[in-house]
Amino acid sequence: MLESFLQNLINALQWGSFYALIALGYTLVYGVLTLINFAHGDIFMVGAYIAFFAASFALTTLGLSGWAALALTIPITMILTAMVGVTLERIAYRPLRRKGANRLYVVITALMCGLILEHSNLAILGASRKAFPTLIDLKIYHIGGVTITNLNIAVILVTSLVFIMLHKIVTKTRVGMAMRAISYDKFAVPLMGIPLDNIIVITFILGSGLAGLAGLMFAMSYPVLEPYMGALIGWKAFIAAVVGGIGDIRGAFLGGFLLGAVEIMVVAFFPSTLRDLIAFTVLLVILTLRPTGLFGIAKTTKI
């Protein structure tokens, strides 16, 4: 019993890591722009594909070893995915912001951007799935009755480290404080000489870079890529962010793990076809009880 619990816990932490990483991007952008960037799940998908091309290039064209290829793939994926996010902000969201468009239009634009990313992928690369190359050898450890892989550990550790760093950035650095300031009052911020557009760009760099990292780790863990892979996981990560209290990074982090845990536990005890139904029901109940999410208390700690 204890063994099966521990096993499920590890699975939940690993699965929840992906939700948490993507949810952080949703919540960062929401905190600064009060925009739900519905293209974010597809930015994650683009990240996975960028990782695929970067890894394939490093392995075959450059002939690097797995570890060297990984070391190269991580920064390339994060930087290029961040550029995709920043490009969306530049060509889609910023013009609407300049015109003072209603939030509804911006959200619809975000949805469309996501669909454009999905379908341009389909148009360019075709419908066939891509198999992600093996970068590092999978090592499986058996501790007691619990099975854990080096990849599991890496995913959980990296996600936790990313969260700690992001939390430091948001609470301790000048740019992070400016992000919080914008979330409270974006009209007052320019009067202090804080360049609004630059801070927004940095927010998109952070959020999309993390989505890229999530895409890479996801592709390494589940090495089959297809254009719609970001859609459902993106929605779920969004819900995780809302359950945690959107706008608060601690909420996104915990919400992601909570959703991962619910899904894994459902599969452990019920038929797996019930997974999404029960997971969403649990989240609905949480939101009914706490409409502002776990950390959304009194709006005192946004982002």
């Binding site: 400016a178 409270y184 007052a188 000489g193 700690t301 946004k302």
Partner: peptide
């Protein structure tokens, strides 16, 4: 228009951005 969820010192630091 002070930032309600930030401390007095954080508000002041924003002034010195």
């Amino acid at each position: 228009r002070i930032f309600p969820g930030m401390t007095v010192v954080e508000n002041l630091e924003m002034g010195a951005f």
